[in-house]
Design a protein around this nucleic acid. Structure first.
Lengths: 109, 109
DNA sequence: AGGTTACGTAAACCTATGGTTACATAGGCG
DNA sequence: CGCCTATGTAACCATAGGTTTACGTAACCT
């Protein structure tokens, strides 16, 4: 049971699904029609997305209507921001370093 | 040649590498020491990260010193923000809808 | 030069994962 | 009640990708 959001987002099909349901709710059929792959394949992607909490599924008669739940995306956004934060913080120290060692990465050449 | 940033970030080892090099530069050896897996495995992860442009590699004698390049992360941040944007935008319309149709998703039951 | 350190690369292996076809289920519809 | 629509599940197959062992290579040290 893949519950890792990053891994779930790794597949382009799944990202596309999220883009589609972000705009508005979609039935499984509508979603499947957007892809070149078979319906069961889409169905599996939907299950993965559902297990990851990225979509919710409402049932209307035979139709399953999928909707985006952006909640788990905060983990991703947070991680990325943290990376960029660390990077930005490190830049100051780096500038000092480069200031002291102007362009001499390999002196023995 | 996996150049898809999302796919690159799917592996926890690679994310951990990025976290490590975000704090400060690290040699391949330092990085490898952080993991339970073998060195060649780490080496391959580093190559993937390098190909994706997420790290750069400077050479100091025998050592390879890796550094974060957060550039490609903007694509991820952008995508996530876009998803959340669409979602937020859709909420207004949804509220209106729910306002008009109070809790009657399936009238024929 | 010989040895050691620090890496990367190559080839083989194995598992996870995504794809397909065939089948099951569940709910309208005549 | 049969039938069609909409969708998920099961079983199976193929490939991608991560891991390992073994090897190659470059640079420092004495």
């Amino acid at each position: 049971m893949t519950t890792d959001v990053f891994a779930v987002l790794a597949d382009p099909h799944r990202r596309r699904v999220l883009e589609l349901v972000a705009a508005r709710e979609r039935t499984a059929g509508e979603l499947a029609a957007e892809f070149d792959v078979s319906r069961p394949a889409v169905s599996r992607h939907l299950r993965v997305l559902k297990e990851a909490g990225l979509v919710t599924c409402r049932q209307d008669a035979q139709r399953r209507i999928y909707r985006l739940d952006p909640g788990p995306l905060t983990e991703v956004a947070g991680w990325v921001d943290r990376m960029r934060g660390y990077w930005a913080g490190r830049l100051d120290a780096l500038e000092d370093h480069l200031d002291a060692n102007p362009e001499v990465p390999n002196a023995s050449r």
